[in-house]
Nucleic acid binder design. Structure first.
Length: 625
RNA sequence: GCGGGUGUAGCUCAGUUGGUUAGAGCGCUGGCCUGUCACGCCAGAGGCCGCGGGUUCGAGUCCCGUCACUCGCGCCA
C-alpha cells in the first residue's frame, strides 16, 4: 500500500509528522532515501554492535537498525515491546546473507537517525508476537492486543473483503441494499428477544430484530422486487462454538415473483463465487446438490450434513425385530415399541483401533449427548465369514447377519455403532456419532474443500412432544407445498388428521456447507387466508396472527406478490473461509459464553436515575434454592 | 436449566503411590556477544498451586462445596 501517489515528492513525504512510508512498503528501489516510519515494536534483537527492531504496522514489518553510537541507543534498547515509535533515517540495502527472504521488506533496513517513543507499552497480558494460544477471557478482555496478532488481524480484514464481495455480487444481480429498523417489535423467529424499554411509552418495550423478516417481506409488498442487507440480527440465546451470543450478521435477501429454484439460482453463484474468491483455492461444489429433509435425516441423522464424510447411516431396525434370530432383546423391544435402531459404520475401526475407542464413544454418548448409550460391534473375518463377538451381533442368525452387513457394505476390520431409541432421539445421536466417528477416525476429507448442499422439502409441522400438539417445525411464514392442480389452501383443508398434517411439506430450505448450517430460507406464504389457516392447524387463532404479526398480515390484504428469500450467516461464512472452528475468531469484539463483553464491561448496572426515567425497577436475583 | 473438561509464575505447560526447598520453555530485569531476524550465551527476579472447608503426622496431589473459563445438551436457523 502506498501512502501517496508516486508523484508525491520524497521531501513532501518526509515532512509528514509520522511516516513517509508504511512498514510493508519499502523495497531496494527506495535505497538511499531518507524515510520515516511509525509503528509498534514487534520484536527486538540486541547484538554486540547493533540493536535490531522489527517495526510493525497494519501493512507489514520493516527492520530498523540502531548502532550504539546513537544517543538514543539506551532508550531504544529499553523500549518495551508493543510501544509505538517513530523513526527516521537512511534506507540501506542489506547485503548477501543479511537479506531476509521471509519478509517483503527483507532487502532493506532503516538506519535510525531519530527515535521517538510515541506511546510506551506496559508489560503485556497477552504477547502479540507468535501464534501461541491464550485463554479466551484474557484475549477478550484485551481484544485490541489480540487483534494486533497476525491471524486474527487477517481474519477481520478478510471479513471486510467478503462483505464487500457479497455486496458487489448482490448489486450486480439487481438487488438494492436497504436499512431496516433496529428498534422494532418482536419478530417471528422464535428466539428470545432483546428488549429495549421505551421512555416515552412507560411499561412498553421495543425488541431488537431477530432478523428483518417482516420488514423484508413488507419491502416486497411495497414493490421493491429485490432486497438485500448485511443485516445485524439479535437473539438472546446461549452460545455455541459456531454461534456467538447476542448478535450476528446475515446476508439477508428477498425476491418477488420467484419460485424456490429462482432463489437457488440467484444465491448459489453468490455463495460459490465468494467461496472461490476467498477459499484459498479449495474446491467448491457446484451445482449444490438438493437433499430432501427426510433423506438427510435418514442418511446423515441431521439436517446439516457434512458431505465430506465418506459414509452414511442405515436404518437397521427391521433386522432386530425378531429376538429369536438376534439373541438381542434390548433392540427387539425398542423396535417393537416403534423405535428405531440406526447403524453408524466405522470403516477400518476394528483393524485400526482398540476396544478403548469403541468404549469411549459409548461413554461420549452417555455423557455428552446424555443418551442411554451407543452399542457397537467389531467385525472380524475368518475363512471368508464376517462375524462379531460383541453382544449386539454375537448371537445373530448367520444369514441375517450377512444381509445386514451387505446392506451396510461392511467387511472384516470395520466397526459398527448402533443408536437405538425413539426415532428422533436415535436419529439425532446417530447423526452426532457419524460426525464424531469420522473425526476420530480421521475420515473427514479435508481436501474436499467446501461441500455445499441444499436441504429441501422441510415438513410444515412437527409433533411437539412437550405439549402434545402439532406445531410449526420452522418459520411459520413458509408456503405449504401443493401438488399441481391444487392450491396450498386445498392442502391445508384436506389435512384432517394429525398424520396428514405432519405430512405437509413446505417450500422451506437450508443451505449447508461442511456440516455448518449457513442459512434457512423459504418461499413465503403471501396469502392472508392461507396464513390464518396454517396458524389454525397449529392451534393458533386469528388473534395470534393479528397480534404478533400485525404489520405483515395487514399488508397481505392489499396485494402481496409471491416472494421468497434466504439469509446466509456472514459470520459462519467467514469462519469457514478462515478455516477456524470458533466464530469468535472472525468477530471483532465478541462476547464470551455468558454474553458478557469483558473489555467494555457490558452488560452493566445503570444509574438509578436512568431507570427511573424509564419506569423500570429491578428486583434482586433470587438466591439459588 | 443440565452434563463433561480445565484451573500451578505475566503466558504455555510438567509435577510419580499424598512426603523435605513446586519445575521447564517463552516473556521480564541485568550482563556478555561484529549482523541478527523465533539470534545465541550467562545470571536474576517472579508462586495464596482459582477460592473455602475437610481427611491426614503431612495435601498442588484425596474428599466436599464454590467460583471462573470452555465444550456439549436444552434453547436457537
Amino acid at each position: 500500500m502506498r501512502l501517496k501517489s508516486p508523484e508525491a515528492g520524497l521531501k513532501e513525504r518526509i515532512m509528514h509528522a509520522f511516516r513517509s512510508h508504511t512498514c510493508g512498503e519499502l523495497r531496494s528501489s527506495d535505497v538511499g532515501s531518507t524515510v520515516k516510519l511509525s509503528g509498534w515494536v514487534h520484536r527486538k534483537r540486541e547484538h554486540a554492535n547493533a540493536l535490531f527492531i522489527d517495526l510493525r504496522d497494519h501493512y507489514g514489518i520493516s527492520q530498523v537498525v540502531i548502532y550504539p553510537t546513537a544517543e538514543f541507543y539506551e532508550a531504544a534498547k529499553r523500549c518495551p515491546s508493543e510501544s509505538v515509535i517513530t523513526v527516521t533515517g537512511e534506507l540501506l540495502a542489506r547485503d548477501g546473507e543479511a537479506v531476509n527472504k521471509e519478509l517483503d521488506t527483507g532487502e532493506v533496513e532503516l538506519r535510525a537517525e531519530t527515535f521517538l517513543i510515541e506511546s510506551q507499552a506496559e508489560a503485556l497480558p497477552l504477547p502479540v508476537f507468535g501464534e501461541q494460544e491464550y485463554p479466551e477471557d484474557i484475549r477478550l478482555k484485551h481484544r485490541y492486543l489480540d487483534l494486533r496478532r497476525d491471524t486474527l488481524h487477517k481474519n477481520i480484514i478478510m471479513r471486510g473483503q467478503v462483505i464487500n464481495s457479497l455486496r458487489s455480487r448482490m448489486i450486480a444481480q439487481g438487488f438494492t441494499e436497504f436499512q431496516t429498523p433496529i428498534l422494532t417489535a418482536s419478530s417471528p423467529e422464535g428466539a428470545r428477544d432483546f428488549l429495549v424499554p421505551s421512555r416515552q411509552n412507560p411499561g412498553k418495550f421495543y425488541a431488537l430484530p431477530q432478523a428483518p423478516q417482516q420488514f423484508k417481506q413488507l419491502l416486497m409488498v411495497a414493490g421493491f422486487d429485490r432486497y438485500f442487507q448485511i443485516a445485524p440480527c439479535f437473539r438472546d440465546e446461549d452460545a455455541r462454538a459456531d454461534r456467538s451470543p447476542g448478535e450476528f450478521y446475515q446476508l439477508d435477501m428477498e425476491m418477488s415473483f420467484v419460485t424456490q429454484e429462482d432463489v437457488f439460482n440467484t444465491i448459489e453463484p453468490v455463495m460459490a463465487g465468494v467461496f472461490e474468491e476467498f477459499g484459498g483455492g479449495k474446491a467448491v461444489t457446484a451445482p449444490f446438490p438438493r437433499i430432501p429433509y427426510k433423506e438427510s435425516m435418514e442418511k446423515y441423522g441431521s439436517d446439516k450434513p457434512d458431505l465430506r464424510i465418506p459414509f452414511e447411516l442405515t436404518d437397521v431396525s427391521e433386522f432386530f425385530l425378531d429376538e429369536s434370530k438376534t439373541g438381542f432383546g434390548i433392540f427387539a423391544k425398542i423396535t417393537k415399541g416403534g423405535g428405531k435402531v440406526i447403524a453408524i459404520p466405522a470403516p477400518g475401526a476394528t483393524a485400526n483401533k482398540s476396544r478403548k475407542f469403541f468404549d469411549s464413544l459409548d461413554k461420549w454418548a452417555k455423557k455428552e449427548m446424555q443418551a442411554p448409550g451407543l452399542g457397537y460391534a467389531r467385525l472380524k473375518e475368518e475363512d471368508g465369514v464376517v462375524s462379531s463377538q460383541d453382544p449386539a451381533l454375537k448371537n445373530f442368525d448367520p444369514e441375517l447377519l450377512k444381509a445386514l452387513l451387505e446392506k451396510m457394505g461392511l467387511k472384516g476390520g470395520d466397526g459398527v455403532f448402533f443408536s437405538a431409541g425413539k426415532t428422533s432421539a436415535a436419529c439425532k445421536l446417530a447423526g452426532a456419532a457419524r460426525n464424531k466417528v469420522a473425526a476420530d477416525l480421521d475420515l473427514i476429507d479435508e481436501d474436499a474443500g467446501f461441500k455445499f448442499c441444499w436441504v429441501v422439502d422441510y415438513p410444515m409441522y412437527e409433533w411437539d412432544e412437550d405439549n402434545e400438539k402439532i406445531d410449526f417445525s420452522h418459520n411459520p411464514f413458509s408456503m405449504p407445498q401443493a401438488p399441481e392442480g391444487k392450491s396450498a389452501m386445498d392442502v391445508l383443508l384436506e389435512a384432517d388428521t394429525n398424520e396428514k398434517k405432519l405430512d405437509i411439506l413446505a417450500y422451506q430450505y437450508d443451505i449447508v456447507c461442511n456440516g455448518i448450517e449457513l442459512s434457512s430460507g423459504a418461499i413465503r406464504n403471501h396469502k392472508a387466508d392461507v396464513m390464518y389457516k396454517a396458524f389454525a392447524i397449529a392451534g393458533y387463532g386469528p388473534e395470534v396472527v393479528e397480534d404478533k404479526f400485525a404489520g405483515m398480515i395487514n399488508a397481505f390484504k392489499f396485494g402481496a406478490p409471491p416472494h421468497g428469500g434466504i439469509a446466509p450467516g456472514v459470520d459462519r461464512m467467514v469462519m469457514l473461509l478462515a478455516g477456524t472452528d470458533t466464530i469468535r475468531d472472525v468477530i471483532l469484539f465478541p462476547m464470551n459464553g455468558q454474553a458478557q463483553d469483558l473489555m467494555m464491561n457490558a452488560p452493566a448496572e445503570v444509574d438509578p436515575a436512568a431507570l427511573k426515567e424509564l419506569n423500570i425497577k429491578t428486583v434482586p436475583v433470587a438466591p439459588k434454592d
